[in-house]
Design a protein around this nucleic acid. Structure first.
Lengths: 218, 218
DNA sequence: GCCTTAGTCGAACGAGCGTTTTAAACGTTC
DNA sequence: GAACGTTTAAAACGCTCGTTCGACTAAGGC
């Protein structure tokens, strides 16, 4: 039984991995269970044995994928605890968070969670509430906390708008990924490019927050 | 022949309209030609008679849809010509442009071009280059011109980054449309809400441009 | 040693898809 | 008014999809 169980777990994982890649690549409807089974190197019926249906496989893929994201996010979050950081440190934290989100959305190669989430936004499934809770909310809350500390005078509604403005700038590069080669002189998507983009977004946003504070003070 | 031709043109239009709505609503793969024919109130074969295949119908839908957008854009653009506007007028122009894009992306009801474009970005088809040329490029160039006039000291690369930052803030509300009810206290998407959002994005972006100018001056 | 159970496999099923065919209805032309 | 090309309607074709079936293998429990 041990050998079988080990193989079973491996089969399960291979199906999950293949399905993650294919769902991200082509979307739910354009992906066939046969393609998934072929890429996973398992039998067609085996996939159905483990997951029951294409729909539940999709939900399982989402759950698995965003569990992993949540975990890596939790590790990064540890840095926040500890004392009352200087403004310079807060800015640095924001810049780093922007860079992390850019990396997560654009690469390395697959940019899988970003793509799956974008697809979920266009064609919401039963997984959407979970994704929002595990993925979107934490990001929003963390950036919101940073904004609130960087601009203490802002009311809650303005903080939310600023968060949307910051996150929007980040998401833009994933949303328009396909169009960017037609739009701009090929951005190489290198580490260097990500750092430069994160730096721009950060300083642009700091200026924006200043303006928002000035506006709400009036 | 005249009566037939009139019916034929009407049939064509009805198919295009139904297909536009369904492709936006469900995406290409989840939409069936039978659904389109049913919603259009025409026979299944009629659609194939007029468009040959589902793929060419999709391309035709895209062409038609973004032709219309381009036309409405051209009308709005007329306002730009004429003299050297004051800074206050430039800001007003930017605010109005942001509001127009928000409206186009979020409503009234369908927000059709925005949805179709987002789908194209996730699953690019042969229509993507056209969409970029007719829809994305003009917006980018116009906002770029505004940015360049509002912050004359910026180099071209920084202007581009600022444009991406502005457009990103706008697109955010379309990208996260499905998640917004889970994220925020239900934004009503009314005219009033759009105006308030446009005002925030505009002032946030003006502050961001100021910061970008200060940064590039260093 | 036999039986149950978990897992895999090839084959097949029914449904729904895009597309094509067939035939009837239509206005136009002579 | 008969022949014609054009447009619509209905049925059918071929294919692929998600899913199911039954046989088979290997590993414990009694």
């Amino acid at each position: 039984m041990a050998a079988v169980a080990r193989n079973a777990a491996e089969t399960r994982q291979r199906v999950i991995d293949a399905a993650s890649a294919l769902f991200a690549e082509r979307g739910f409807h354009a992906t066939t269970v046969r393609d998934i089974a072929r890429r996973a190197g398992v039998n067609l019926a085996a996939a159905h044995y483990h997951f029951g249906s294409k729909d539940t496989l999709y939900l399982e893929v989402m759950r698995t994928q965003f569990d992993a994201v949540m975990q890596s996010l939790a590790e990064r979050r540890a840095r926040f605890t500890g004392g009352r950081p200087s403004r310079r440190a807060l800015v640095e934290l924001l810049r780093e968070r922007v860079a992390v989100m850019l990396e997560m959305l654009l690469g390395p190669p697959p940019g899988l969670p970003g793509t799956l989430m974008l697809r979920e936004m266009l064609d919401p499934s039963a997984a959407l509430p979970d994704i929002v809770r595990q993925f979107v909310r934490p990001h929003k809350d963390e950036i919101g906390a940073l904004v609130a500390r960087l601009a203490p005078r802002l009311d809650a509604a303005t903080v939310e708008r600023c968060v949307f403005s910051i996150v929007g700038q980040i998401f833009f590069y994933r949303t328009q990924l396909a169009a960017l080669p037609h739009l701009s002189d090929s951005p190489p998507m290198t580490k260097r490019w990500i750092a430069a983009t994160a730096a721009h977004i950060t300083s642009f946003s700091l200026g924006g927050m200043r303006a928002a504070a000035a506006r709400s003070a009036k």
